[in-house]
C-alpha cells in the first residue's frame, strides 16, 4: 500500500495568485497542485500526495490560530502518514507558515519534512520537529530541493536510516546520535590537529553554538528632550526611487531629509518593497512608517524632536549579512548624530 502525503503550499505556489491573494484563508483541494505535483512524481510507487492545502502567507501569519485550526482538521480527516510543506526558500512569511504547519502536524504524530534557505528566520522554529532540506534562496532551486525532500520522506516511511545532515542535504537539528567511528577519539583529535598545522581542511565533530544577544540599551530618561529617528525595512522611498533601492534582496539603504514635512504622504513617498501588496502603503506611506504621528508627538512636546533623516531599505529576501551591514552603518550615523532612540518598522 502506498503511504499518504498531505502537501502544504502558499497562495503563490498553490497557483491562486501573488501578493494580492496573500490574505486568502486556507483551502484544501484533493488534487496535486504546484510543487505537490512534482513531489508526487518523485515518490514513484511508494507513496502518493492525497491533497494540497493552500493558505495565503499574510492570512497564516495574521490569523495563526484560525489557520492552524482549519489545517489540523484537514490533517485529522485525511489522516496522512507524512505532511510536507514548502519549500519556502528565503520567504520569511511562507517559512513561518511552513514551520507552523509542520509543528502542528508533528504534534499530531505525523512525520514532517519541509525545505528552507539557511537564513530563513523560520528555520529555528521548525528544525526541532521537522527535517528541513537546505535550499538556495530562491525558487529556482525547486528542482534540486524536491528530490532531496522526496528521498528523505521515502526513507522515513520505509524505515531506512536517514543519513547525516551533510549526506542528505538537510539542516542540522542539533541532535546527537551514537555512532561507531572508524578511529578512536585520541587518534581523531591528533589527525585534526595535524590537519590544522598543515593548513589542510578539517571538520569539527562538535560545532560550537553561536550566541549573539545584544545587551538591552538603557531607556531614555527624558522623552521630551529626546531625538527619535524613524527607520523602516518596508521599502518606503521618495516617488521615483531616486537611489534605486532594490525591491528585493536589497544591496543598499537610503536616507531622506524629512525635516520639512509633517508626514511621508506629504513628502510624496511610495513603496518599492516586492514582498507585500503595495496598495495600502502607496495610498498612505505613513501606514508603514508613521512619520505623521511622530511629528505630532514632537508638536505636542511628548518628544524633543524627530531626527532630520528617515532611513529605509527593503527587507524581503535581503541577506542577513547585508542587514548586519546596513544596521551597522545606520547605527553609526545615528550614534554620531546623538540620536536618543529609534523606531524601526517592518512589514
Amino acid at each position: 500500500m502506498k503511504f499518504k502525503v498531505l502537501y502544504y503550499v502558499n497562495q503563490f505556489f498553490g497557483q491562486v495568485g501573488g501578493e494580492d491573494k496573500a490574505g486568502m484563508a486556507p483551502e484544501y483541494k484533493k488534487e496535486k497542485i504546484g510543487p505537490a505535483l512534482g513531489f508526487n512524481g518523485l515518490l514513484g510507487d511508494e507513496g502518493e500526495v492525497v491533497g494540497t492545502l493552500i493558505c495565503g502567507d499574510n492570512y497564516f501569519n495574521e490569523n495563526n490560530e484560525e489557520a492552524l485550526e482549519y489545517i489540523k482538521n484537514v490533517i485529522k480527516e485525511e489522516n496522512p502518514d507524512v505532511v510536507v510543506a514548502g519549500p519556502a526558500f528565503n520567504a520569511g512569511r511562507y517559512g513561518m507558515a511552513c514551520a507552523g504547519v509542520v509543528n502542528a502536524a508533528a504534534e499530531m504524530g505525523k512525520k514532517v519534512v519541509t525545505g528552507m534557505y539557511i537564513e530563513n528566520p523560520a528555520v529555528d522554529h521548525a528544525k526541532g520537529n521537522a527535517i528541513i532540506v537546505e535550499t538556495k534562496d530562491s525558487a529556482a532551486d525547486m528542482r534540486n530541493a524536491l528530490p532531496k525532500m522526496a528521498a528523505i520522506v521515502k526513507k522515513l516511511m520505509s524505515g531506512e536510516e536517514v543519513g547525516t545532515p551533510a549526506e542528505e542535504g538537510y539542516i542540522a537539528q542539533g541532535k546527537r546520535l551514537t555512532v561507531f567511528a572508524k578511529d578512536r577519539g585520541s587518534k581523531r583529535a591528533v589527525d585534526m590537529l595535524l590537519a590544522r598545522f598543515n593548513n589542510e581542511e578539517f571538520e569539527t565533530e562538535l560545532p560550537m553554538p553561536v550566541f549573539d544577544k545584544v545587551d538591552i540599551a538603557p531607556a531614555i530618561k527624558d522623552l521630551s528632550k529626546a531625538t527619535i529617528a524613524l527607520v523602516t525595512s518596508g521599502g518606503i522611498v521618495p516617488e521615483g526611487n531616486p537611489d534605486r533601492i532594490q525591491s528585493a534582496s536589497a544591496q543598499k539603504w537610503g536616507k531622506y531629509d524629512v525635516s520639512g514635512v509633517d508626514s511621508l504622504q506629504e513628502g510624496g513617498y511610495e513603496t518599492i518593497h516586492g514582498g507585500y501588496d503595495p496598495v495600502y502603503a502607496n495610498e498612505l506611506p505613513d501606514r508603514v512608517a508613521p512619520l505623521d504621528f511622530m511629528k505630532q508627538a514632537e508638536k505636542e512636546g511628548k518628544i524633543g524632536k524627530v531626527f532630520k533623516y528617515f532611513y529605509t531599505t527593503t527587507g524581503t529576501g535581503t541577506a542577513v549579512g547585508k542587514s548586519i551591514e546596513f544596521g551597522t552603518e545606520i547605527g553609526k550615523e545615528l550614534k554620531e548624530a546623538g540620536v536618543d532612540g529609534v523606531i524601526l518598522t517592518s512589514t
Partner: peptide, 17 residues
Amino acid sequence: MVKEIERYGIPIVHMST
C-alpha cells in the same frame, strides 16, 4: 538591523506584525 543599531547603545523599538 534592530540588533546592530542597539549594539551602539541606542534603545530601539521594533514595530512588526
